[in-house]
Design a protein around this nucleic acid. Structure first.
Lengths: 393, 393
DNA sequence: GGTATTAGTTCGCGCCACGAACAAAGTCCC
DNA sequence: GGGACTTTGTTCGTGGCGCGAACTAATACC
């Protein structure tokens, strides 16, 4: 039950009912396609007549296409409806400290074009690098007209000013990325934190969580980010900085973190932490990358395995807090670490079980990195504007 | 933006628009009363004609009464509308380990009758004690017909089975409280965790947070409970155990907690913890109560002040995590500790500021114990069924 | 007492979901 | 091959609802 926000609500008009039912029908087609009008009526509870009118509207607006006839054991054959995945193209941009990846996707979340570029240290230069590639990308497939750009980045964005307000692992300060991109492309731009984007990707494209009302995405890379979906909704906080569990204290008087605090979770459970565990305190000439450590651990190197285990332990320590405090249905782990899930998963699960006694039944699952969850999330960001629940009251 | 839950949604009918607008008008009357129809139209954006029809309905259903005429500098005088606070009575029950308090309230949240009884150790006996008093209470004021019972308790309740699933500070196990109360009284019963109830009380009756979309209530007593309201909505988790931040680990290998874990927040920041700090490790013949410690600290006793300060420090430690992770607009502190807020507040605020660097602008505020937030929350629990946003799509 | 102003009501219109009746297009069985 | 049956999809009249223009009511000011 939600309280009506009397400072920001919408009354119902005579068209509200149609808006709502249209969304429901559109979503049912998306998730059950191919599906007949009669089945839509059965699934939705609407009358067949109403479904007919709505689908006719959706067809004329090209959201839905009528395909082949289906087969039925008895009676007239149903006419199948499909989501028109070519209706709009969406550009996704995934900014990471080292490289930025951009892609053009259709409504299915399939990427029809991709490319990447190094992320410039200077945000102004970055924008200058990005814009020509962006313009090029939107014209790769002429039949797929682009209608929006989604951006994921390792930081939090103030929804009012559109400026980066918290991004310790990306050395940009108070930069407004939205406005220049919108002006250059003429397309609406949505910015979102990478972990939030991963959560959205799972919600909208993940097979596993149709019914998951509460989900936490944990991105493990140079730092740790968390994206919260609670009651089927992204939790951003009124200033956009909700979800920074990566910077909660897990070690009293611990290592200094870039955020200014001490003993943050990400100082002990991120990729950088594992590298530190591996190299030890002694300064070495050539610092290995996390990929190196991961590869060595996979080959059975004892020191590397030890480092990864310590990292996994601390991942468990932090996730135990998430399980205790939020009791989500699913914790989704995103990052290179998932490549060694056979070793890492059991350690995390055990640590969480030891430290959380609240009867929460949270499943901790890795994501396949080849699915590009950060990038897919940016697509979901734009997609949800057409498929999300209409805001009412 | 919410995703439509295709396993559990409601289509719009021709009456949906009215449902929505009715709720909006009812809420506007509740928060702006006395208010004229014309002002309702201005605030809502609905046409005056539509407002007239809706208010007429609300008046015939006795939710609203028409009062005196207002004054206007020019033109016809408005006819003021009021919420009919005597429309229904709600019974609230606040169960705490030692005593249970019950009250009858009207729609304003004013208690018209109250009483309390000791909480029996055996839940069956407790129910037997409670029922006659409950029946008595519902008949105190014959003009106020009771329509529901709200219950707050120090534990989590599974919304499916209605059984207590996590209540380490209340020695009842797997007990179904809802069914016997409903059968005895014939009224619908809603169970809710005490911290969640406090959060609801603030949302529905607190003056300060009309626009607070994210709020965390922290109840500090024998243990620590947290109630989360995010995106204007209570976060319960699918099994009802979300919000147990009282049992996150704040001290590695710390003291054993009743929950089975070690080093839980509530072992270091609850009232019991402060008593432990005061008495030290040595076993004393007569253990002081937390009230004693609090009184001594108020009188300037150094050892008591030290104990309270340590408790306050640990309250800050835990709240820093809440601020970092959830960035709520408000953290609401409930408990006896608020009586010494002048001493305690600054310590908490400083600790939180030191440990949370994420630019969250959370206000930490104490509640007045005389407002009975736990009890008021149970009223809100029933009230929101009439005033909450209609569930749609 | 006329004019201006504001409050509240009446009424016709268009949007919408409902549901009964109907048309379309199959299968099954004699 | 043709009638009975079944299922799909459409048509159309009905009632709920919000809109907005026109209208009535009530008051202040000049």
């Amino acid at each position: 039950m939600r309280k009506i926000d009397l400072t920001n609500f919408r009354v119902a008009t005579s068209e509200t009912a149609r808006h709502i039912n249209r969304r429901i029908v559109l979503n049912l087609i998306r998730s059950h396609q191919p599906i007949s009008r009669a089945d839509l009526a059965r699934h939705s509870g609407l009358q067949r007549s109403t479904v007919s009118v709505i689908t006719e509207q959706l067809i004329t607006e090209r959201w839905v296409t009528e395909g082949a006839n289906g087969h039925a054991p008895r009676g007239r054959r149903p006419r199948f409806l499909h989501l028109n995945k070519e209706r709009v193209g969406i550009v996704g941009i995934n900014i990471r400290p080292a490289t930025t990846r951009l892609a053009l996707a259709n409504l299915d979340g399939n990427f029809v074009a991709q490319e990447s570029l190094p992320t410039a240290n200077d945000p102004e230069k970055f924008v200058a690098d990005l814009i020509p590639r962006l313009k090029n990308l939107t014209q790769v497939r002429s039949e797929l007209t682009c209608e929006g750009i989604g951006v994921s980045l390792p930081g939090r964005v103030d929804s009012g000013s559109h400026k980066l307000v918290f991004a310790p692992n990306l050395d940009w300060h108070d930069f407004d990325l939205k406005t220049p991109l919108e002006e250059a492309t003429g397309l609406p731009v949505e910015l979102e934190n990478a972990a939030n984007a991963c959560a959205l990707a799972e919600i909208w494209f993940g097979g596993r969580s149709e019914a998951a009302q509460d989900l936490v995405a944990v991105t493990v890379s140079e730092g740790i980010g968390t994206g919260l979906v609670l009651n089927h909704q992204l939790v951003r906080g009124s200033t956009g900085v909700a979800g920074e569990f990566g910077h909660i204290t897990v070690v009293e008087n611990g290592l200094k973190c870039r955020c200014g605090n001490q003993g943050c979770w990400e100082m002990y459970a991120s990729n950088s932490a594992a590298v530190r565990y591996y190299t030890g305190s002694k300064p070495t000439a050539s610092k290995p990358s996390f990929d190196d450590v991961l590869r060595l651990a996979g080959q059975g190197d004892a020191k590397a395995l030890e480092a990864i285990s310590t990292m996994a332990h601390y991942l468990g320590v932090g996730m135990a807090m998430l399980v205790t405090g939020l009791a989500p249905d699913i914790i989704l782990v995103i990052g290179e670490i998932t490549r060694l899930w056979d070793q890492v998963g059991p350690i995390i699960t055990r640590t969480v079980a030891e430290r959380s006694q609240t009867h929460a039944a949270t499943k901790i699952v890795p994501t396949d990195p080849s699915s590009h969850p950060r990038l897919l999330g940016t697509i979901a960001l734009v997609l949800q504007q057409h498929f999300g629940a209409p805001s009412v009251a």
